[in-house]
């Protein structure tokens, strides 16, 4: 990509010699990976819902799995966006729903209950990563409460606010006289 990008530049434009540390933090990378995982899982749930329900011994729940697929897709898109924290929270909530649904299929009379147990284990592991990403991803909104600096002394008018107002009035007055 850098090679292609450099073709777009002119001879005198600077080119990268050595790259420095990135503004992307490990939590951001984790969120991105989970976002792509969400999109992959979501696509699978939408496209192969019948195979999933068969593997889990939960036939008849194809519609629900497809709906969860769309939810995963949306969570994935959100996790890849700049609002990744919201995406991560939606994934955590989704993990809860997934776990509850899987638990309903974890019955003695389900011949595929071992697969359900395996899926539950995976959901638990992913939920741990999702929650870790939520905790580590910095909130986009500024901190509430104390520790703020207020800038009530920064008028930007070295001669004071009133002097600025009166100079503007004088200017407008002169302009009005000039116009008449």
């Amino acid at each position: 990509m850098y090679y292609v990008a450099n073709i777009m530049r002119s001879k005198g434009d600077p080119k990268i010699v050595r790259s420095g540390p990135s503004s992307i933090e490990p939590a951001d990378r984790l969120a991105r990976r989970l976002g792509w995982f969400s999109i992959g899982l979501g696509a699978m749930e939408v496209l192969a819902s019948r195979r999933i329900t068969r593997a889990l011994g939960m036939r008849g729940s194809e519609g629900l799995v497809r709906a969860y697929g769309f939810r995963e897709l949306f969570s994935g898109v959100m996790s890849l966006s700049v609002d990744k924290r919201a995406g991560m929270w939606s994934r955590v909530a989704g993990d809860g729903l997934d776990a509850a649904t899987l638990l309903s299929g974890f019955r003695y009379d389900n011949p595929k209950k071992h697969n359900v147990a395996l899926a539950l284990l995976m959901v638990g592991g992913i939920a741990f990563l999702d929650y870790k990403a939520v905790q580590q991803t910095v909130a986009r909104s500024p901190r509430r409460g104390g520790g703020r600096r207020l800038y009530a002394d920064r008028s930007g008018f070295p001669k004071g606010l009133e002097a600025a107002r009166s100079s503007a009035k004088n200017l407008l007055g002169r302009a009005a006289v000039g116009a008449s």
Partner: peptide, 28 residues
């Protein structure tokens, strides 16, 4: 020289890059 370089979404780095060069008589 050092410069802040865009590498992708939310990915800015302080990189070492080649110095810019005059290309045109009207450049500085």
């Amino acid at each position: 020289m050092r410069a802040l370089v865009w590498h992708g979404k939310e990915d800015i780095r302080c990189d070492t890059v080649t110095d810019p060069e005059i290309e045109d008589p009207r450049d500085a």
